[in-house]
Computed example of a mutant assay.
Amino acid sequence: MRRRHHFHIDHAGHSVSATVETGQRVDVEILVDGKETGHGITHGDRPVSVPVELPTDPPIPVSVRTTPGPGVPRCVLEIPDGDPHVMSPRPY
């Protein structure tokens, strides 16, 4: 059975959202400021990291690491030379 999970964080004045659709194949979609900027696929409980950029001047390369399970998925925003930031789950 497939199920969708949503996560969000604001960083450096930009909105980063992730939608994780779980099941046998796990699809991860990343939106930055409401625009799709990255997509990743994994299987089972294997983590996947999706690289994206924050549209600053110059752009900041970041990645969203998703751990699908076991249990409820988790998403973390990884920033070069910085601590990872846990993305908050959203109920929609």
Rank of each mutant, 00 (worst) to 15 (best):
S63H: 07
R74I: 03
V20E: 12
V64R: 00
P89A: 04
T22G: 10
R25G: 04
I41S: 03
R74D: 10
R46N: 08
E78M: 13
D81C: 13
P73M: 02
V50N: 05
I79H: 02
R74W: 01
P47E: 01
Q24S: 12
R25M: 04
V26G: 04
M87V: 13
T19H: 00
S88D: 12
I60H: 01
S17F: 13
V48W: 00
V48C: 07
E36H: 13
T19V: 14
G44R: 08
E21N: 08
H43C: 01
E78H: 12
K35R: 14
I79A: 04
P84W: 01
V26N: 00
P47N: 00
P89Y: 00
S17V: 03
S88K: 05
R46K: 03
V32K: 13
P61L: 11
P51I: 04
A18D: 10
R25N: 04
D45A: 08
K35G: 03
T56Y: 02
G40T: 07
E53V: 09
S15P: 00
E29G: 09
P51A: 04
V72L: 11
K35L: 04
L31S: 09
T67M: 09
D81Q: 10
T19Q: 15
D83S: 10
L31T: 13
S63P: 01
L77C: 15
P73C: 08
G13Y: 05
P84R: 13
R74E: 13
S49Q: 12
G69H: 08
V76C: 08
D81V: 06
E53G: 04
P84K: 01
